[in-house]
Design a protein around this nucleic acid. Structure first.
Lengths: 153, 153
DNA sequence: GTCGGTTTTGGAACATTGTTCCGATTCTGG
DNA sequence: CCAGAATCGGAACAATGTTCCAAAACCGAC
């Protein structure tokens, strides 16, 4: 029973990704089933962790978050405790929307949303004062061309 | 009336970002108000476009999307029609989760989610066959350290 | 194929929540 | 301090989420 998703599960996921405010009846009709089965499938996928948190996408610019940076980080330190401190710092900072550890020359990439360039500098200064970083390159986004959380199923 | 958000609006936004499945009563209690005002505020923020789509975050790896790349794109073409074609291609491809136009050396950054490296190559080949690109660097994510859609309010 | 057991389904019943309405209250500008 | 407008809070209603259970579909063993 672990987590074999069939075609109907995937279609339900697709509908939820597209619009999580749809009623069960609506989804049931779209996937050609009925209320209860759809609800049970959703519950199981939630328990299995396939379906995570339910959120609302808010318009960053309308809230005054006009600046978005992608930050490429290189470090000289690769010890476990340094890494732990770095991760802790990233998770604690709400401006950091996304953080990945990379393969290759560059060690980490961050996506950072702030109100303006000065706010980014404040973030940057705070970060390098917390952990030692070898090299940082910031890429400034001029325009968000596309953004989606929906995986292609 | 345009879109002046007060403290309560922001707290409502925060609650919705954290968990959009909460009931109006729950949110109302948390922000120290009652059902109807909360509902009206949410409706207005929706109409103003502050609140966008309501979705569900699904676990990419549990669905077999094991590879995530950040793609740095440089181009020699900067004409309007080339850009239009490029944007169209990006928006049409569901693997492209995110795309930004940048300031500086690098012209675009993409976040691409695929099932494996071969799928990324297929995407890459398809893209460069559609539009002319000067230089591409792909950064492979080894680990998603952090991911959130919640803006810091 | 057929039988027994397990899982899934779909409809009905119930509980909770979303949505609307309206009188009372608070806020705002003069 | 007053009048007008906007907001609020509770009640009533409609819609939705959640549970329950019997019937149907599925599956493996024989």
């Amino acid at each position: 029973m672990a987590q074999g998703l069939d075609a109907i599960d995937r279609r339900i996921l697709g509908e939820l990704q597209a619009d999580a405010s749809q009623s069960l009846d609506t989804i049931a009709e779209k996937v050609g089933s009925s209320k209860t089965p759809v609800w049970n499938r959703i519950r199981k996928m939630r328990e299995a962790g396939v379906i995570g948190p339910q959120t609302v996408i808010v318009d960053a610019e309308k809230l005054g978050f006009d600046a978005c940076f992608f930050v490429l980080v290189r470090t000289s330190e690769h010890e476990a405790d340094w890494q732990a401190a770095f991760l802790r710092a990233l998770k604690a900072r709400p401006e950091v929307m996304e953080a990945h550890r990379l393969a290759g020359e560059i060690d980490y990439i961050l996506k950072v949303r702030v109100k303006n360039a000065r706010a980014y500098d404040a973030f940057y200064q705070a970060l390098i004062s917390e952990v030692k970083i070898f090299n940082v390159t910031a890429l400034l986004s001029m325009e968000e061309i596309k953004f989606t959380t929906a995986l292609p199923l």
